[in-house]
């Protein structure tokens, strides 16, 4: 059994993980603004990025509350380095081309909907409340990424090829979403966190259905990469953080 204090510390770390996921993916999606294939998509991407940045702020805000040591949402976003970030690797992969971003989004969106549905049941009222807000957004995100993957997969030869390449390149990073470590197990046992290992079957059912409609091949499960939760990242994250943090870190202690 964990003490009240241990539980709070674990919840803090868990919340930070979820904040990191949201910030890092939000950053990647925001890179599409002014770079979309047409104006409507620029706007749609802006919307999704905004949802994720908002989500990061809710998680970080709660983490700050739990830490209660003067740190703020911005301390978490701007003053931690690569090894301290605990996002899942799939979120930090570069934006790639439009197919790559939409395929990544599809894998993450299906997961997010399953995950948030469970997090709604959390005994932690704040996490449950964040999930309630986030799931509405994620339903919309999924509608979009699902439609796009189907259109691109069943579009031209080129778009299908690009989607399949993206899927094959990203697939090995999807397994990490369903891994549990001791911290997450403790929180799942306490009814606070989500047992993500139980989500993969449902996730796969939805993936198969969509890929079939998109005329894309389900990749083999013959490679996987993980380590994000322990700060063991790809080389992409360092560059992302360099850009994200440059102004904030150049003027220490300032208000913006």
């Amino acid at each position: 059994m964990m003490s009240e204090q241990q539980l709070q510390q674990a919840t803090f770390e868990y919340t930070l993980r979820l904040g990191d996921d949201a910030l890092v993916l939000g950053h990647r999606i925001s890179e599409w603004v002014r770079n979309g294939p047409f104006l409507e998509e620029d706007i749609a991407y802006g919307n999704v990025a905004l949802d994720y940045i908002g989500r990061a702020r809710m998680f970080y805000g709660y983490a700050a509350e739990l830490a209660d040591d003067g740190r703020t949402e911005d301390s978490f976003a701007y003053t931690r380095s690569e090894r301290e970030f605990s996002n899942l690797l799939i979120n930090e992969l570069p934006r790639g081309d439009f197919a790559y971003s939409q395929v990544r989004q599809l894998l993450v969106d299906i997961y997010a909907n399953l995950f948030l549905t469970r997090l709604l049941q959390s005994k932690d009222a704040t996490l449950a409340a964040i999930a309630a807000k986030a799931i509405k957004e994620s339903r919309y995100h999924l509608r979009r990424s699902r439609e796009w993957v189907i259109r691109l997969g069943d579009g031209t030869e080129e778009s299908q090829h690009r989607c399949q390449l993206a899927l094959d390149d990203i697939w090995g990073y999807s397994h990490e979403m369903f891994e549990m470590d001791a911290l997450e197990q403790q929180l799942a046992d306490a009814g606070i966190g989500v047992d993500v290992s139980s989500l993969r079957d449902d996730w796969l059912v939805q993936i198969r259905e969509i890929l079939a409609e998109a005329t894309l091949q389900l990749p083999a499960d013959d490679w996987k990469v993980s380590g994000g939760r322990d700060g063991y990242h790809t080389e992409f994250l360092g560059h992302l953080l360099t850009e994200l943090q440059i102004v904030h870190r150049s003027y220490p202690g300032c208000q913006w």
């Binding site: 905004l50 908002g54 702020r57 970080y60 911005d74 904030h248 913006w256």
Partner: peptide, 15 residues
């Protein structure tokens, strides 16, 4: 957008 020095400003700029 990617360099905004606070999350609040980032959200405002994105919007």
């Amino acid at each position: 957008i990617t360099r905004a020095p606070s999350l609040r400003r980032k959200a405002v700029l994105l919007a």
